[in-house]
């Protein structure tokens, strides 16, 4: 009989919560357990999900990234503006992704080279990107480029009767795959885990700390920017004032997805489940009709608390075992 590896406990808890929430919904509402609801769930949460993949890497490395919401909004308005002035959509997306990666790398450099606290540096990033978004254009810009209006809607797959998997959802799932690959099958990914678990040991083991840390924030910048791109697909517009507080959703998804907030333990597919849990709670509350949206925040807060305390208990037990 093999004992359950303690690092899987939060992940199992996540899966249990996911099944429980989905089960509750299906039991209460006949229309809840349909593929269509599920596809919509993926679609509605795609941009949060993509950004949360980047956040997962930062949290795995023991840091935190607060600039996610601003980054998504910034990229949104950047693309909308570029398209407005007649830029090719692919070029615009490329520029946006580069800008996001660059901003992430700059934050990573500040954190590594000057040993500044990540939450403060990314907080500055939050302010900067939010402001820069308004510099580009202070109001919402609709996107009516033919690529968005005509090509995108066709890039979808019928997965079940009356359930069309839209392109945004595909982007989300692709991000999960790419993220899982990076985290589990590259040296960089493994170094992220090592640094997040014990930076001092990682240094003594001769792992490249500087390169890994900076790359982690650059990668988070890339995924946040990708989240912004997906958001333009979803919203068909860019607005510098949007997505305030998205970083909290991203962080909550990662933690509820079973990743240790102190770093070193967690799985990218867990983040997928975390995003789905958050989305399901939202859907559930919408289905109910009498419950109000603020319950979402409270439930997320309670879940966050449960997972943080659970992690604390596991790590405490691990310490006493030594």
């Amino acid at each position: 009989m093999t004992r359950l590896n303690p690092k899987y406990i939060p992940l199992v808890a996540t899966a249990v919560v996911l099944v429980a929430v989905f089960g509750t919904g299906s039991a209460l509402y006949p229309n809840f357990g349909t593929p269509r609801v599920f596809v919509n769930l993926l679609n509605d949460n795609a941009f949060v999900g993509v950004a949360a993949i980047g956040e997962s890497f930062v949290i795995l490395s023991g840091g935190i990234d607060l600039s996610v919401g601003s980054m998504v909004a910034f990229v949104g308005i950047l693309i909308a503006k570029l398209l407005q002035v007649g830029c090719d959509p692919f070029l615009a997306m490329g520029i946006a992704l580069c800008a996001g990666t660059f901003a992430g790398a700059v934050m990573g450099c500040l954190i590594y080279f000057f040993e500044m606290p990540p939450f403060l540096v990314t907080l500055a990033g939050l302010f900067c990107l939010r402001g820069l978004g308004f510099v580009i254009y202070p109001e919402s810009i609709g996107i009516d480029h033919p690529f968005y209006a005509q090509v995108l809607p066709q890039l979808s797959i019928l997965v079940a009767p009356k359930a069309v998997l839209p392109f945004t959802a595909m982007c989300f799932l692709a991000s999960v795959l790419v993220g899982t690959f990076i985290a589990s099958f590259t040296r960089f990914g493994r170094n992220v885990y090592a640094i997040g678990s014990n930076e001092n040991s990682a240094r003594l083991m001769g792992l490249p700390i500087a390169q890994t840390k900076i790359l982690t924030y650059a990668l988070a910048g890339f995924f946040s920017a990708a989240g912004g791109v997906v958001a333009t697909f979803y919203m068909q517009s860019g607005n510098p004032a949007s997505f305030v507080g998205l970083e909290l959703d991203a962080i909550a998804s990662v933690v509820i997805g079973g990743t240790l907030l102190t770093g070193g333990v967690g799985f990218i597919p867990g983040t997928l489940m975390g995003v789905l849990i958050l989305g399901l709670i939202q859907t559930l509350i919408n289905f109910n009709g009498t419950l109000n949206s603020w319950w979402t925040k409270i439930v997320i807060g309670v879940l966050l608390l449960i997972f943080i305390v659970l992690q604390k208990l596991i790590s405490r037990r691990a310490v006493t075992q030594l």
């Binding site: 690959f181 170094n191 090592a194 792992l207 691990a318």
Partner: peptide, 25 residues
């Protein structure tokens, strides 16, 4: 012990010099 407690034994022995195949561990 300056190793990474959360990783597997095998990984602790090889991390930083893992055998890879076109970038894949």
């Amino acid at each position: 012990v300056n190793l990474i407690p959360h990783l597997s034994v095998a990984e602790n022995i090889c991390i930083g010099r893992q055998p890879t195949w076109i970038g894949t561990v």
